[in-house]
């Protein structure tokens, strides 16, 4: 089992976004998160690369990614006033896609900030 060491990894658990974390990881999980605080450690160590959940769920039943993307697009397309919301625990790249999608849909767009 190879242990990978990643220097200067970034923790996004809180707004401090510490970018000096040293991670020790194998294929499956992160074993150590040096310099991270308790919250950051718990966040890093709680995730695994395992397939814990189904790829997708449609109406509560397991589905493939392709089916789910199709279903999501159809729901959004059919709606007169869709809402795109959230975007905190994700990357800026994904956020940019969300904004573009909301633009095409004529949708409402909002984040956690408004709470």
């Amino acid at each position: 089992m190879d242990l990978k060491v990643i220097d200067n990894a970034t923790c996004t658990f809180c707004g401090c976004v510490c970018d000096d974390i040293q991670l020790h990881a194998d294929e499956n999980r992160i074993h150590q998160a040096k310099k991270a605080c308790v919250l950051g450690k718990a966040w890093f160590l709680n995730h695994t690369a395992e397939r814990k959940y189904p790829d997708a769920l449609i109406d509560g039943k397991e589905a493939t990614l392709d089916e789910a993307i199709e279903a999501a697009a159809e729901h959004l397309y059919q709606a007169d006033m869709p809402l795109v919301y959230g975007m905190s625990n994700t990357t800026c790249e994904a956020q940019r896609e969300c904004v573009e999608m909301a633009d095409h849909l004529g949708a409402l767009l909002d984040s956690h900030t408004s709470l």
Binding site: T91, C92, Q95, D103, L109, H112, S114
Partner: peptide
Amino acid sequence: HGNVTGADVIMRWQTGYPFGISFN
């Protein structure tokens, strides 16, 4: 909350507003 700041910045960049937007 992780990247909320990013959400503000991206929405400001793309739309001019940070949140609470309608494209309708």
